[in-house]
Nucleic acid binder design. Structure first.
Lengths: 223, 223, 223, 223
DNA sequence: AATGAATGAGCGTTCATTCAT
DNA sequence: TATGAATGAACGCTCATTCAT
């Protein structure tokens, strides 16, 4: 389905040498963003990290914003793949899938990249349209996994309830990195936290009762 | 109970005129951070927003870092006060207090400041010691409220369990701003989300069963 | 003969309190100039060293240049006094006076102030008229001492010869601070150097033979 | 014998275009230092004098200190070459070499650069390690010329005496710029001064008598 | 495809100076 | 007298970007 490994906004890099360089750039950019934050995310530092001249970096990316956009896409890609893999896994029941989604998100934040990348993305998203779009894409896709699981786990729920619960679970998972992420004070609670979260949120889905208000449209008729 | 309104790392501003200017600076700085993010949080922009010269801004804050630290303190102060107020409220039962803490955090993110400030703080905390310290202080104090409520709501829990559940609730609440915060796509779900969160997390506390491992020390004796 | 101890270009400081403050300022300014050099000779540092506000410092000296001028005068004063004292000393023969002038100049540069002050003065004199004027005054007065001694030590010399020799001795003495001054590598040679200089330059005066060219005007007639 | 014309602490400028620019920078920097002094020796003024942007100047020299160090080296180079040339000259007797060293130093200060540069160097040397090191290098090399000549002119002198006399001559020559240098009041005495100095200091060497204290070790035996 | 050179704007900070109190 | 507040220019330096080679 994918044409090239590296999805880019760059204009150059069609040759195999160019593809290589692009990967080098994106890898360096990711390191810089994760290590020193967006505030020190400079073309100079990226070029230096990638062991190339600023001139050449600019040759691949005419502007810093384009590079950032590509970088966000590349990093987000990785997380989308995790969700896809779980969704497609035929050996798992729906319950197991739900638990695994929750656990994988929390456990993943043991990585420095995860712990450092998301806060940068969130901060950027508040002031940068492209970052906001990338973030929206990521969370829509992430939620679509949960969205599909909820009605199968508890078919009695209205669509509105499903949306709300899905949003609630997603949102609740996002903050974990700051507490049990890489180098955080609560890091040693990470595994216990993952378990507790999996159990709690699964129960939220299973125990939810069809609300009378929101489902009224269809159910009121029957009553 | 408080002696001065403005807690500062500045060196100047002891006169009433100075206090006024300090407030103007911190207010301007908050606006800038919230509106354009830390990446565009410059002394010049702050001075311009505060309608003063850079020279005078530098007169009050010898370095940008000192200003940032003071700003973080001032903003964090506000949130600490919210928790304190709930804790001290004698008209509320413990259950109500717990629910109110949860709700107030989620509802508060309808404010642009809340929605924009925290991601900046989180991002900063990953690369800036002072910001990390400020964030730690904030969450410790926030959690201390929940920490005190949990054992009263469910006395059968071990201390370890309390800590874990407290951490879980805190972490789960932090991510909400990105989903139902100011101008976010899910903003219209904010109130429903607050209710759902309050119910869910309260139940986590009430329904938690004493774990056999950690509480064994005391309970094994009785058995 | 002197009216006030402190000769100033300031406008204020006529009260006794003011005189005290003026002395405090000039003393602080001298410390700053000697310790960190003219390049870091700032009103702020002077005010801080004098333990007063910049506002008050500016009250006494409306500009940095005025303060500098006063400072140069004050420091130069000290050296003028040394020469005067030797000149007036009735217990010394002319030969002894000459030697003492030479020795005192060289020995004086064991002081940090002397070693550090003069290079600043020389550098300033190249770009700052007031400094150049101060330096000229100092050297004219210093040379006037030698000027008066030379014809008495060797009456056969023409006035032109006296001027040249006087200039030669003065100039030769000025460079010593950089070699045997405070903290300089050759500091341990200071005393030997003083002796050698005294002997050498005294002999220059005593051994000089009336030149035929320059003295011709008067002497050619007699011949 | 030299490999490159420009000895630098810069990082850039390896191409021929870069070498040209480097020379332009160092030339401009020398002009600025000589014309307005270190106090007004700013990156902006140097860039302006070199007719380039500050950005480009900073591209060649990441810091002002590096530029200063390179400048000092370049200027000092020139003086070292003068001494070397005299030393190597096979048409001169030792006496002539000594006289020429003395004369060339004094006569050289008719140049504005010499007259203005050295006071800046001396002042800098008191507060700037790199400047102090440059100055030390210059004077050590200058004195090494004299050091080698003295024992040949008067073999009866002990090493201690040679060192002292060498130091004395060097130091005495250094102050001349302030009296007979470019634009100085005594400038018209420059040539006469050079002659007088040459004669005087040569005689100091020739007429010095072996001191009894320092040479005693070896000579006491023979006695 | 890659480099080094160059620009101009902007950064945080410091400066001499002025002014109200 | 003395202070603190305030200004505007300038400081050394870094930035994203452009361009010639």
């Amino acid at each position: 389905m994918k044409i090239t490994i590296v999805q880019t906004r760059h204009e150059k890099g069609n040759s195999s040498k160019g593809q290589e360089t692009l990967l080098k750039i994106l890898s360096a950019a990711r390191s810089v963003l994760v290590d020193v934050g967006y505030n020190a995310f400079t073309m100079r530092k990226i070029a230096e990290t990638a062991d190339m001249s600023i001139g050449n970096l600019s040759y691949y990316y005419k502007s810093k914003q384009l590079l950032l956009s590509d970088l966000l896409d590349a990093v987000i890609e990785r997380y989308l793949r995790i969700f896809d893999d779980i969704t497609r896994d035929k050996n798992l029941t729906d319950e197991q899938k739900m638990k695994q989604v929750i656990c994988s998100i929390i456990l993943d934040c043991e990585r420095k990249e995860t712990t450092h990348f998301f806060p940068e993305l969130w901060a950027l998203a508040n002031h940068n349209e492209e970052a906001a779009a990338g973030m929206d894409l990521l969370y829509e896709r992430a939620r679509s996994v949960i969205d599909r699981l909820i009605p199968r786990l508890n078919p009695s729920l209205s669509q509105d309830q499903c949306v709300l619960i899905s949003l609630f679970i997603s949102a609740s998972l996002e903050g974990q990195a700051m507490f049990v992420g890489y180098n955080k004070k609560g890091a040693h609670h990470r595994e216990a936290m993952a378990e507790l979260a999996a159990e709690t949120f699964l129960n939220v889905v299973l125990d939810a009762k069809p609300s009378q208000e929101t489902t009224s449209a269809s159910e009121a008729v029957r009553a």
